[in-house]
Amino acid sequence: MHRIAVLAVAPVTAFDLSIPELVFGSAEVGGGPAYEVLVCTLEPGPVDSTGSLRVLVPHGLEVLERADTVLVTGSGSRADADPRVLAALRASAGRGARIASICTGAFVLAQAGLLDGRSATTYWVQAGALAHRYPAVRVLPDVLFVEDGPVLTSAGLTAGIDLCLHMVRSDHGAAVANAVARLTVVSAVRHGGQEQSVGAPVAAADGSSLAATRGWALGRLHEPVSLAELAAHAGVGVRTLNRRFLAETGVSPLQWLLAQRIERARELLESTALSVEQVAGRSGFGGGDSLRRHLLRRTGMTPRAYRAAFSASKPAPGA
């Protein structure tokens, strides 16, 4: 079982600290849990949070020694972390553990030198401070999360959910990640390059949300769907559709549609014995070449390689 050590650096952001257990704790493979999640801190016991709560953390830094993934959650302090914490992080990275952070946990990774020469992100409010204090880090202030080799960083709050779902998807495939997303009632597909949508307006509560149109499109992923058809279903013009889609989802209608098609293809590759051409047709790519190109760009894997890595079924003879 993959062991995840969640490192709390006081004062912790309680919401961030709850995310790993929420996401990883909901993942199942073969009818059993896919991960063991252990929360640790420098000195086990009560840990102050950025609010009025105190959190009881049961484990110390020894948990990091046996962890496959070490995840530092957000902290209200950007001051230098305890040298023992930084040394434990360096040791984990040195033996090959996957290292990640949520929100301002990136400051702790930067203090440990684990972000030097890498791309990273953090909560947009603190992105400038991270870039100024650690010039060796290529800070990307507007994205949800960044994966640079074995080190991953996310923006604040709900972007931490996106990061954890991405890790589940990388470890066990789209079907498992989507099952977790359904259990936790969150969006299954928000890719790292998507903007944090700073200042984006909240969708109106007057019935003008495009949720019905997105649901309509999801039922037609196997068909060509144009911007004009999406706009017609929503009862608006194309320009209005683009503007409102961006406000509600953070991406354009065509970017959203492509992400859903890729997600459908990944699930079909994992859970069926359909040929690559059949998967391409059912997910709206038209042909295998188009599917290969988009899947390779998104995952770094061809459809056959993806199926070999994640499939629960074998391709049909001659497929």
Rank of each mutant, 00 (worst) to 15 (best):
A205T: 07
A129F: 12
A136L: 11
V189D: 00
Y123D: 04
S101I: 04
E62R: 15
V176M: 06
A91W: 14
G74Q: 04
R66M: 05
T272R: 07
V189L: 00
T272W: 09
V198G: 08
A87E: 12
S208R: 12
G32C: 02
L210Y: 02
A88V: 15
E223L: 07
G45T: 09
R190A: 05
L291H: 00
G237T: 13
F310E: 13
A97V: 12
F285C: 04
S18Q: 12
S275A: 08
F15E: 03
A67P: 14
L115Y: 10
L152F: 12
M301D: 00
L227K: 00
A247C: 11
V238A: 11
D48M: 09
D162S: 14
H172M: 14
G117F: 13
D148P: 06
A14D: 06
P315L: 07
L53R: 02
Q260G: 01
G96L: 15
P11L: 09
H172E: 13
A181H: 04
V143R: 01
P224S: 10
S26T: 13
E267I: 10
S226V: 06
T73I: 07
A309H: 09
A8N: 05
A175D: 02
F15S: 08
R298C: 02
A67S: 15
R307M: 14
P315Q: 02
Y134P: 00
H222A: 14
L144S: 02
W124P: 00
L89P: 06
A316R: 07
A316S: 07
S275C: 09
A5G: 14
P315E: 01
G76F: 03
L257S: 02
D171M: 10
L296G: 01
